[in-house]
């Protein structure tokens, strides 16, 4: 049905030929844009409703009764459903530690939460298909679980800023929400997100359409194909400063994959964008002393590299 709309708009209304470069590029743009926007709006809305049932306060209660291994797995999974934005990273961290959640489990949560975020996941699904989406989710969760376990084993508690341990959280009951509140919240949240990312998506899909139509097919194979050793670390380094633009990056990645960028490199790049960002590190500096921050970044960096190389070898 979406294809019919795109065809009608481009070929009938604009009278462009389906054989022309411009025609196919524009058709691709219209179709992809409508599809991605519909998916984002519908899924973000339902995810927000689901999330309203998992506030960080509840997640904390679930996690402080869990210990190691299972705790790491549950923390990573809860990281997907607990609403989280990097501006809340500090209160979440303090809240977890104060209530007795082990450090390693807290890190599993803090890694999974931004990495497996709904916008990135929906865009991967819409543009690259459910298999790649699933690979992304599973490898993201695996990194969060393993990195958390390692950090738990390293006994890094002394590298948490001292004041964190002196904090006493006040008890405060957050009022219960009615279904109507939750729907309102979800509508508002969806609107906010769409307002923020729409422009990036449109530009990125347009740019993607352009590359799709004009760039030669094996442009990247030589430099960023699966045999390139340097491609994965390079992709991660480029990804770090591109924080919060997962929405804009995925459409471009999609086209680059079609032009020969290997999947492992693409995955590593996206993980770096979502989980390894400068602003997030600066925020975490509030609660972590420098050695711990460096260990955290190093473990994430190595895990993402490993994932990238692994999928380049496997696929």
């Amino acid at each position: 049905m979406l294809q019919t709309i795109a065809d009608t708009m481009v070929y009938s209304l604009l009278k462009l030929s389906s054989n022309s470069m411009l025609g196919t590029a524009l058709n691709f743009f219209v179709y992809e844009s409508i599809k991605i926007f519909l998916m984002l709006i519908i899924i973000i809305f339902f995810v927000s409703i689901l999330r309203s049932y998992f506030p960080a306060e509840k997640t904390k209660k679930i996690l402080n009764s869990k210990h190691h291994f299972w705790g790491n797995i549950i923390a990573a999974l809860l990281g997907i459903v607990t609403p989280f934005c990097s501006c809340s990273a500090v209160p979440v961290f303090i809240g977890f530690i104060e209530s007795g959640v082990p450090l390693g489990i807290t890190f599993s949560f803090l890694i999974a939460s931004p990495m497996v975020n709904e916008v990135a996941v929906i865009m991967l699904w819409g543009l690259l298909g459910w298999k790649i989406m699933l690979i992304y989710i599973i490898s993201g969760l695996t990194i969060a679980i393993i990195a958390g376990i390692i950090m738990g084993k390293l006994k890094l508690e002394r590298f948490v800023q001292d004041y964190v341990y002196e904090m006493k959280l006040g008890e405060n009951k957050i009022p219960d929400q009615s279904i109507k509140d939750r729907i309102n919240y979800a509508l508002n949240y969806t609107k906010q997100i769409m307002k923020k990312i729409s422009i990036y998506i449109i530009i990125a899909i347009a740019l993607g359409g352009f590359i799709h139509g004009y760039a030669p097919a094996d442009l990247l194979v030589k430099y960023a194909g699966k045999d390139s050793i340097i491609a994965v670390p390079l992709a991660v380094l480029i990804g770090v400063p591109l924080y919060s633009n997962a929405a804009g990056i995925i459409p471009i990645i999609t086209v680059l994959i079609q032009k020969g960028l290997s999947l492992g490199t693409a995955l590593a790049f996206m993980m770096a964008v979502t989980a390894l960002s400068f602003p997030e590190m600066i925020i975490l500096k509030n609660v972590l002393k420098t050695p711990l921050l460096i260990i955290f970044v190093a473990i994430l960096f190595v895990s993402i590299l490993f994932t990238g190389y692994l999928f380049n070898i496997l696929i």
Binding site: P55, A56, K60, C87, P91, N172, N188, N286
Partner: peptide, 30 residues
């Protein structure tokens, strides 16, 4: 100040507090 924020027992910001009571946390209201 994070220490003051945490005394209200919330984990998501921003939060709105009226006369010492947390009314909303973790979202922007209209």
């Amino acid at each position: 100040d994070i220490k003051q924020i945490m005394q209200y027992g919330i984990m998501s910001t921003p939060a709105l507090v009226i006369d010492g009571k947390v009314k909303i946390s973790g979202k922007v209201l209209s």
